[in-house]
Computed example of a mutant assay.
Amino acid sequence: MPEGKIVKALAGFYYVLADDGSITQCRGRGVFRKNKITPLVGDIVKFQAENAQEGYVLEVLDRKNELTRPPIANIDQAILVFSAVEPDFSTALLDRFLTLIESKHITPVICITKMDLLTDDRKVKEYASYYENIGYTVLMTSNKDPEGVATIYPYLADKVSVIAGQSGVGKSSLLNVLRPDLDLKTAEISMHLGRGKHTTRHVELIEVEKGYVADTPGFSSLEFLELEVEDVKDCFLEFVRLSEGCKFRGCTHLKEPKCAVKEAVENGEIALYRYEHYMNFVEEITNRKPRY
């Protein structure tokens, strides 16, 4: 039975890319509904071709990870796209994305766009330097500078990447630079709401630089529905590195004495805004309504 990767899902159809480069439009067999399994873009599946163009997905192989909003599986890395301005760069939103991505064991790459629109870039570069120092790759680009955007190419090869970030930051514009033949629809920022309109309606893997990039509708939910309080500290890289110096094993870095993380905050080694975001996320999960 042939295997392939789902590269597009639209209107109940799954488009499966086989090893020979052919794409088969498939429907899912009823067994998926019975077992409550929904095939996702990025899934490796076994399928049966009824003819040269049509067939059925019969089995979804084990996933290494998955996201539900947007629905995609087997992701190697997330390109987190944040604008320097319009909308303004938000460390709170970036840390929320990083926490969600880290919890799924997906490698984040931070891409700051619209650098050309800044009159004073010192603050944004200060933020970028901090995230680089704690271990993240940070790329600063302008969609008007194809050479600058080209710095992303080496990170895309042989990987499945998802482009994520707030609406209106230039995700579709970025993909248009990476693949000019796509001519993806983009939308202007709503001056009233301060955010862009969603311009992508489905999930699709697009081949770029011998890898695949997912064009997605964006994260429609950024709630920590699958995270527990004790998981959050492991999603902050600098906390993990310093936690070995805490007096108590399993320190939550909140009320315990002789906490290396709190000491690092006090001496400026850890940015205060990062620690405040951590406390906010823990409080949010603590007060989360139980699911039934």
Rank of each mutant, 00 (worst) to 15 (best):
Ser190His: 10
Ser190Gln: 10
Ser190Arg: 10
His192Ile: 15
His192Glu: 15
Gly194Pro: 12
Arg195Met: 14
Arg195Pro: 11
Gly196Asp: 05
Gly196Met: 08
Lys197Gly: 06
His198Gly: 13
His198Val: 12
His198Ala: 11
Thr199Tyr: 02
Thr200Gly: 03
Thr200Leu: 04
Arg201Phe: 15
Arg201Gln: 15
His202Gln: 14
His202Tyr: 15
Val203Asp: 13
Val203Lys: 14
Leu205Ala: 08
Leu205Lys: 11
Ile206Ser: 07
Glu207Leu: 07
Val208Ala: 05
Val208Gly: 04
Glu209Phe: 13
Glu209Gln: 14
Glu209Lys: 13
Glu209Met: 14
Gly211Cys: 11
Tyr212Thr: 06
Val213Pro: 03
Val213Tyr: 05
Ala214Arg: 07
Ala214Trp: 13
Asp215Met: 13
Thr216Arg: 06
Pro217Glu: 05
Pro217Val: 01
Gly218His: 01
Gly218Tyr: 01
Gly218Trp: 01
Phe219Glu: 08
Phe219Pro: 08
Ser220Gly: 12
Ser220Pro: 03
Ser221Pro: 02
Ser221Gly: 03
Ser221Gln: 04
Glu223Val: 12
Glu223Trp: 04
Leu225Met: 15
Leu225Val: 15
Leu225Ser: 15
Glu226Gln: 12
Glu228Lys: 14
Glu228Ile: 12
Glu228Val: 11
Val229Thr: 13
Val229Ala: 09
Glu230Phe: 11
Glu230Pro: 08
Asp231Gln: 07
Val232Gly: 04
Val232Pro: 06
Lys233Pro: 07
Asp234His: 10
Asp234Glu: 09
Asp234Val: 03
Cys235Gln: 10
Cys235His: 05
Phe236Met: 05
Phe236Glu: 06
Phe236Ile: 05
Leu237Trp: 12
Leu237Ser: 14
Glu238Val: 02
Glu238Pro: 00
Phe239Pro: 03
Phe239Met: 11
Val240Tyr: 04
Arg241Ile: 10
Arg241Ser: 12
Arg241Thr: 13
Leu242Trp: 02
Leu242Gly: 00
Ser243His: 09
Ser243Glu: 08
Glu244Trp: 09
Gly245Ile: 11
Cys246Pro: 01
Lys247Pro: 01
Phe248His: 12
Phe248Ala: 09
Phe248Met: 08
Phe248Arg: 07
Arg249Leu: 02
Cys251His: 08
Cys251Ala: 08
Cys251Gln: 07
Thr252Cys: 07
Thr252Phe: 07
His253Gly: 00
His253Gln: 00
His253Trp: 00
His253Ile: 00
His253Thr: 00
His253Tyr: 01
Leu254Trp: 10
Lys255Thr: 10
Lys255Ala: 06
Lys255His: 11
Pro257Leu: 03
Pro257Lys: 06
Lys258Asn: 04
Lys258Glu: 02
Cys259Val: 00
Ala260Gln: 01
